[in-house]
Design a protein around this nucleic acid. Structure first.
Lengths: 365, 365
DNA sequence: TTGTATGCGTTATCAC
DNA sequence: GTGATAACGCATACAA
């Protein structure tokens, strides 16, 4: 009431904020309609407005170069047009691809993509989760794997609960063992298939460079390797402590150079495989004649190194997550999708020549 | 008035929204203080509040697990706690590093980082600019270079004007020829220094793989190459159409293989240099014995390829931009900083053996 | 189909 | 120091 009286007390004044910004009220006034009507046409609400009126409002908005205040809209809708994507590190191409997938979908619907680097710290992950919830993000995409041993997991669960009570939609991109929609790959299968591929190439003595210690993803990939080796009756104990970066690959390769070389090596990531590859080559090893090397991810540089690798649908992971978050389908906490992966054979792996020899030995013996 | 009466009419009821969220009013009620006082302590305003009162409010907030509604706060402050970073493509490590620089600073102050991929489209850039302005971002960091010929430049200028009238701070990370704070490198100097370095190594016939056509950054880098060659009395006409990706590098190298090889090649980006490097090697050329190769950026993979390159302070560019945006210094439209770059000599460049020969020829002649 | 009035959850401006 | 209350700019339930 009071507000309205003030307005009438200053007849003829435009309702402009200090920044000179034109508000919806200005549009309504110019179009000669009520604020409500102006809102109905500008907000794109499915509400009956006469076409003539609609046009007048649009014209007025255009004349005044009206731009809706997203904050005010968000306040009443209890929701911002933003999607938060929580990742390890945007400079890691794995996460960058996911983020790109999210952003592409977000942009199509005028959503903004918020990026949150955790450097794999569960504490930072929770902090960002909280921040995004407070920001009333429309959706939160959590891309990193979990650390089953982390004490922060309990707080994480509570945040998931809070998210489920709120209107912001949550999607996890790896098996986080929480009640939330998940879009993932089968990490165990990833290494199983890759290991089988190398075994099929005649390799027997296969080394594995592990992923980041303690990460659930690393655990499952390690299991897949072990299982594939076991089913072929091979020894899966040739493992090197690793990580997803280049350095762990280098370190593992340096160790290999000092001992008997394996037939092949699988690294838990492309980057680690690059480290293995270049270090072995610098050590005088011919790839793939002496040792085959394979990675996981198929990132942009895998082709450059001609690296055999497992292609992960990183971009699609992000894109599907964003679609689900923005989408009009009703929220379903049991929404779960597993995306397929496949081996991309390239030049760093080849048929194991000594396997022929073994066969001959077998025949002779 | 009406609101208050309603509250009294339902004694004992907690003021909770439909989402069950606890609001500041709940905190105030529980602490037995007014909404204003509760706001003063929770918003961290520099306003005198008795320490005892302050503590009561804090306790109440903690008891109720109160989380401030950032949207409501943003509405009255006319500003969200977000920084938008407008880049070409987050999967390009150059931009990823910049984004990381921004995000690191943002996180320290509880700001959210919004990422905007334009794919170098001026139209998309403007669209995102508009979106960020409407979102009342605290700051906008524009990282991409400009296309001097683009018709969208006028609209861009208008957006810059609008930004300057609003409270959101704008920073550009390349020479955009607009009235806005800029944090850049000297692109002309970048190629000049690198070219001089190669000339100093005895190379004479130097090829240049250009950057993306039409981009101001590419233009300036090309100029730097030409100038350095000219001042040494060398021919700068050995240029290949390029781009910042791997493929343009490959294409240029393929061309080189079909003609007389240059002494050295400079690519406008590391990625292009990788393309040149691998393609030449696949063509049987020994690097650096026959041809030296250098790039620009010093991204994470440059070390892997042992690539000589120009180190660009990408991370710092982003970090400084974010600091300036969040910072407490008064806004200064003439704020301009140029960050230094330097050559990182690695294994893909070496002294030109035939230069010795030339010297001997000279002496003999 | 249009208009009126209320509320969204804060901060800020007054008065006390 | 503290409290009451008016914005902030929009969407929407309810009235007409």
């Amino acid at each position: 009431m009071a507000g309205r009286e003030n307005r009438e007390a200053r007849p003829g004044t435009r309702r402009r904020g200090p920044g000179g910004k034109v508000a919806l009220a200005d549009v309504a006034e110019r179009a000669g309609v009520s604020l409500a009507t102006a809102s109905r046409v500008m907000s794109g609400a499915a509400y009956p407005v006469a076409e003539a009126t609609r046009e007048r409002v649009r014209q007025a908005a255009s004349d005044l170069a009206y731009a809706p205040n997203m904050i005010a809209r968000a306040l009443v809708r209890r929701m911002t047009n933003t999607i938060g994507v929580v990742i390890g590190d945007i400079t890691d191409s794995y996460f960058a691809e996911i983020a790109r997938g999210v952003e592409d979908q977000a942009y199509r619907r005028d959503f903004l993509t918020i990026i949150c680097n955790t450097d794999r710290s569960p504490a930072v992950e929770n902090a960002y989760f909280r921040l995004l919830l407070d920001h009333h993000a429309a959706g939160i995409v959590i891309a990193g794997g979990s650390f089953p041993q982390a004490p922060e997991n309990e707080a994480f669960r509570e945040l998931v609960q809070e998210a489920s009570r709120s209107a912001t939609r949550l999607v996890v991109l790896s098996d986080r063992d929480v009640e939330a929609p998940a879009i993932c790959v089968d990490d165990r299968m990833v290494t199983m298939d890759l290991t089988r591929y190398l075994i099929g190439l005649g390799h027997r003595r296969i080394a594995y460079v592990e992923g980041l210690t303690g990460l659930s993803t690393s655990l499952r990939r390690g299991e897949g390797f072990a299982r594939a080796m076991a089913e072929a009756g091979l020894d899966a104990s040739l493992r090197y402590p690793g990580g997803f970066g280049i350095e762990p690959g280098r370190a593992a390769a340096a160790l290999m150079l000092r001992n008997e070389l394996p037939d092949a090596v699988i690294a838990a990531s492309d980057e680690a495989a690059f480290g293995v590859l270049t270090t072995l080559q610098q050590g005088g090893v011919e790839i793939p004649r002496q040792v085959s090397v394979a990675g996981i991810d198929d990132n942009r540089h895998a082709q450059l190194f001609n690296l055999t690798t497992m292609r992960l649908p990183t971009y699609d992971l992000g894109a599907m997550a964003a679609k689900w978050v923005i989408g009009d389908e009703p929220s379903a906490p049991d929404y779960r999708v597993t995306l397929p992966c496949r081996v991309i054979p390239r030049g760093t792996t080849s048929w194991n020549a000594s396997a022929d020899k073994r066969k001959e030995d077998l025949r002779a013996g």
